[in-house]
């Protein structure tokens, strides 16, 4: 890749320039900042769309009262039951139980507080997902 060919396609990187290696006019390697590259943007948006889909699925399930709001927060934080259980320092089966709406409603404030601080939301947001901001896909404008 020649220095002049280093792509500067704004997108997923949200303004952060990363270093790429390219060859200058004398044939020497130099480090050149790049704002991004279209194929990379495309493949990253593809991954973000999958995440956004998972969050949306969880949101609908919460609204239908099929799962507890915790499921939504879990998706939004790109976690699965195993990872969430590790961070909470509790067994997986307990997290699984907390994903049931009727059990989640009865959680004590200590447990709610631990979930909330881990997931970086308030206790109110933890219980009412309509208070949570919509996920922003990096580099794309909000509608």
């Amino acid at each position: 890749m020649l220095k002049e060919e280093v792509p500067q396609d704004q997108g997923i990187a949200d303004g952060l320039k990363e270093v790429t290696y390219a060859v200058n006019g004398n044939g020497d390697y130099v480090m050149v900042p790049s704002a991004g590259w279209e194929p990379k943007n495309i493949s990253n948006y593809q991954a973000w769309e999958v995440i956004a889909e998972q969050i949306e699925t969880a949101r609908c399930q919460v609204l239908n009262n099929e799962v507890s709001p915790l499921a939504y927060h879990m998706a939004r934080n790109q976690m699965d039951i195993g990872l969430l259980a590790q961070y909470m320092g509790i067994m997986r089966w307990r997290v699984k139980r907390h994903l049931k709406p009727q059990i989640f409603k009865k959680l004590n404030s200590n447990m709610l507080n631990r979930y909330a601080s881990l997931l970086k939301v308030t206790e109110e947001q933890l219980q009412d997902i309509s208070l949570v901001e919509k996920l922003r896909i990096p580099g794309q404008d909000q509608e």
């Binding site: 890749m1 990187a13 990363e18 270093v19 790429t20 290696y21 390219a22 790049s34 590259w37 194929p39 990379k40 495309i42 493949s43 990253n44 593809q46 991954a47 999958v50």
Partner: peptide, 18 residues
């Protein structure tokens, strides 16, 4: 297509220098 996307991401991810 998801498999292809993953391949590009691993190849061009931040940190590979291209």
């Amino acid at each position: 297509l998801l498999h292809l996307g993953q391949l590009i991401r691993m190849q061009e991810e931040i940190g590979t220098g291209g």
